[in-house]
Design a protein around this nucleic acid. Structure first.
Length: 423
RNA sequence: GGAGAGGUGGCAGAGCGGUCGAAUGCGACGCCUUGCUAAGGCGUUGAGCGGAUUACAUCUGCUCCGGGGGUUCAAAUCCCCCCCUCUCCGCCA
């Protein structure tokens, strides 16, 4: 959510930003309604001031004169009631328009209509060249006896899976490597609730709009978060932090739940797109400073890269173009890791920068000694998400004999083993 | 699930229907005292939305004591509904 005053005073930037994001907005209507609402508010304030003034005088009157004076005030109150009713209607009309105004993308965001026009920033690591016919992760998982999709579907329905033995161990190893890397880099580990209330979903800008993607426990009116970003960014909601506490850097491991509504038939093979997965997520709550946010943005991308490098996986960094940016983002990098079976780089990480768009909704503020109350700036990025990351991990490190090499950094998490062999 | 208590400023915590945006304490900030530190003294300090001037500070109006409704000329204070939190008991990983 953008500040209405900002929208008023920077209408051209807002309009241009929405165009760049290919998001239709009704800015003129919003501005006209806002203007009307401000005028009406002013009028209502005047009436209220008069009522307050007279009420105070009545308090000083002898009791027998009070009822007559009160009658005059009641006439004013009738007038006020009318103004308030119109004002309420206006606010109801303004709110959805206001919420649908997208955050203004950075000047650095490239033009483009959708993800096909994202801009590659750079590539790291060599794409593996196989001298044999490589298997995909489903075949590898089965032959190694570590992945069981059939039983996952039997027990939990489509887009579900079991990891078994070394598969489960491998997943745990990857997650632990990610967590340890982040803690070494000064991030505080949080264990978080994933079943959250509406305001957390709304505050992080998943709602309204994303309701169809979230599992809803109706009996308790709670939602299963699709990412730890939701509880972590909400951690300090409704709080006023001291400037000296910032930035807050958190890393959290959590299960993530996504309904994948509307994705029927898409990415159905294997464990690329599933309903439940585990993710280590990094979140930074920063002071309101655009340059600083840019720096943190680079930092959280760098953190994810460190993990990918440790996993010895080839990847590329992509700058997401305007048309592929969400409502709330100022700028976003995706990291795409090479997946041999898909014969392309595919998204494994997403690093978003929001400025105060989330913080404003979450009432996440800090007190600046000089300028007073300010909304924080928030950022987040994946550190690692499993089992999606197991796809490149298994596929890239497979060997001719059907075994899979374990990268050095992972070995200590797997009892020192350097290879997984078929049964 | 049963019973009770409570939701007030950055935090803790008072609050008689009008003089309450709200005592007090802590914290923060400024100044002073002291060789440094520690400690002490004095003072300042809520937020949101408008308006004026046009500066970046000042002045001014309104709203806000969990949320919504009601009573009243006047509500933090009285009434109703909802939400949330805590305590005890029961059940339980």
């Amino acid at each position: 959510m953008l500040d209405l005053r900002y929208i008023r005073e920077h209408a051209d930037d807002v309009r241009e930003g929405a165009r760049k994001k290919r998001i239709p907005i009704e800015l003129d209507k919003l501005l006209a309604l806002d203007e009307e609402s401000r005028k009406l508010t002013f009028r209502a304030d005047e009436i209220r001031a008069e009522i307050n003034r007279r009420s105070k005088e009545i308090g000083k009157l002898p009791p027998e004169e009070r009822s007559k004076a009160g009658a005059d005030v009641n006439r004013l109150k009738d007038e006020l009631k009318g103004a308030e009713e119109r004002l309420r209607a206006l606010v109801d009309e303004i709110k959805p328009l206001h919420l649908s105004i997208p955050n203004v993308p950075s000047k650095l965001v490239p033009e483009g209509k959708d993800d096909t026009e994202n801009v590659e920033v750079r590539r790291e690591g060599a794409v593996p060249q196989f001298t044999f016919k490589p298997k995909d992760h489903v075949e590898l998982g089965e032959s190694l006896g570590i992945l069981d999709i059939e039983r996952g579907v039997k027990v939990a329905g489509t887009r579900n899976y079991f990891l078994k033995g070394d598969g489960a161990l491998l997943e745990r190893a990857v997650l632990n490597l990610a967590i340890d890397t982040m803690m070494a880099r000064g991030f505080t580990l949080l264990s978080v609730p994933v079943l959250v209330r509406y305001p957390a979903m709304e505050g992080t800008a998943y709602f309204p709009g994303g309701e169809e993607q979230a599992y809803h426990c109706e009996k308790d009116d709670l939602f299963l978060a699709g990412t730890a970003e939701v509880p972590v960014t909400s951690f300090h909601s409704d709080e006023v932090l001291a400037e000296s506490e910032l930035p807050k850097k958190y890393v959290a491991w959590s299960y993530c739940f996504r309904r994948e509504a509307g994705a029927a038939g898409k990415d159905t093979r294997g464990i690329y797109r599933i309903h439940q997965f585990q993710k280590v997520e990094q979140v930074i709550i920063a002071p309101a400073d655009a340059d600083l946010s840019e720096r943190f943005h680079q930092e959280i991308v760098g953190n994810a890269e460190a993990v990918l490098r440790a996993l010895e996986l080839p990847y590329r960094i992509v700058e997401v173009c305007g048309g592929d940016l969400g409502l709330s983002q100022v700028r976003k990098y995706d990291i795409e890791t090479w997946m041999p079976s898909r014969e392309r780089y595919s998204e494994t990480h997403s690093a978003s920068m929001f400025f105060d768009y989330q913080a404003r909704r979450l009432k996440l503020r800090y007190k600046d000694a000089k300028a007073g109350m300010k909304f924080c700036y928030t950022l987040n990025n994946t550190v690692i998400a499993s089992p999606r990351i197991l796809i490149p991990l298994l596929e890239c490190h497979q060997q001719a004999d059907g075994s899979v090499r374990i990268p050095k950094a992972l070995q200590s998490y797997l009892g020192g083993r350097d290879v997984l062999k078929p049964a």
